[in-house]
Simulated assay, not measured.
Amino acid sequence: MKKKVSIQDIADKAGVSKTTVSKVINNTGNISISTQKKIHAIMSEFDYQPNRLAATLKTGHTKLIGILVPDIRNEFYSKIVKKCESLLFKAGYTTIICNTERDYFQEENYLQVLKELMVEGIIIISATDSINTDLIEQNKNIVYIDRVPQSDNENIIKSDHYEGAKKAISELIKDNRDPYLIMSKTNYSPTRERTAGFKDAVQELTPIVDIQKHIFRLNVSSDKYLEENSLLEEFLIEHSTNPKPLGIFAINDYVAFMIIKTALKLHISIPEKLSVIGFDDASVANIATPTISTVHQNTTLLAEKAVNVLLTNIISNNHGKVKKITIPVAMVYRESFPKK
């Protein structure tokens, strides 16, 4: 029978201590690149596989982090997940990605599974505002991305959705556009903040009394952006004959793409008769024809802040200061609303 290779065997072959081998395996400590390569080569030669369970029992650390994401197909979410995963891997952690499909019960089930796997922390990119508090209590090291605070002890990293929306619609109003907000059927916290920014800008900068009449909700979610939408067609036909040119703030870039595609079908000129500003700065905004002006979210910074807060909390054994961080956004001007 082939002898089982131990850490001591690896250490003897490499001419280093067991501690050094252990640090290389767990990606901890300040070990030189040459020593790391040497140890990894010997591990490969012996086909050595570390026993994660044994290490967990010995150290009490699983080095596992859960990431809950509402829709992995959504570019905004996937960028954040990819960056978080990369940063956590460099810090010696393995990630478990849980795609919840925006479903409360699926999210709850994943939280239960992560608890059973004894993950050391969780990043929740939340599409739901209410999460089982009992499960949260049992998973102390949690950072939320884009969530309205439910209590004072939540770590929350978010973009400045309110100011981004307010800036976008203010630009359209100042350009003498008739302002409208077009939304998808979803209504999560970033959507509500963007809607509040729209309302406040309209209230402050126009004589419009019934702001609700300038908000139009589609009957589909934004992942249906490639499909025809008869309600959107009816809206554009009705409003494109107004004396003032339209200025539409789309709740995200996918809705903006739907608006532009429909406007072109109806031969409504952009930006002469219709200007559009989206939100997120997704790839679709840069490849659409015409290209879409939008509000840029810094997904890299969102991920970096979330990982930093989570790891600080883990290292401090959940005694770190609660963080609520708002990341600035920025206007990006393209063809659907050129910079004046």
Rank of each mutant, 00 (worst) to 15 (best):
5 V>T: 15
8 Q>E: 13
12 D>E: 14
12 D>N: 15
18 K>N: 13
20 T>W: 05
20 T>P: 04
28 T>K: 14
36 Q>K: 15
42 I>Q: 10
54 A>V: 12
69 V>L: 09
71 D>C: 09
72 I>D: 08
75 E>L: 07
76 F>L: 12
80 I>Q: 04
84 C>S: 13
85 E>N: 11
95 T>Y: 00
102 R>I: 09
103 D>Y: 08
107 E>T: 14
114 L>I: 10
120 E>R: 08
123 I>L: 15
125 I>R: 04
127 A>K: 02
132 N>E: 12
138 Q>S: 12
146 D>I: 01
148 V>L: 09
148 V>T: 11
157 I>N: 00
166 K>Q: 10
184 S>G: 13
191 T>V: 02
199 K>N: 06
202 V>Y: 01
206 T>R: 09
208 I>N: 07
208 I>R: 04
212 Q>A: 14
214 H>I: 02
217 R>T: 15
218 L>M: 10
218 L>E: 05
228 E>D: 15
232 L>G: 03
232 L>Q: 02
235 F>N: 05
243 P>G: 00
268 I>S: 06
268 I>P: 08
269 S>L: 07
269 S>E: 09
273 K>F: 00
303 A>L: 06
305 K>W: 04
309 V>N: 02
312 T>G: 11
315 I>K: 15
319 H>L: 13
324 K>N: 14
331 M>D: 03
332 V>Q: 05
337 F>H: 12
337 F>M: 11
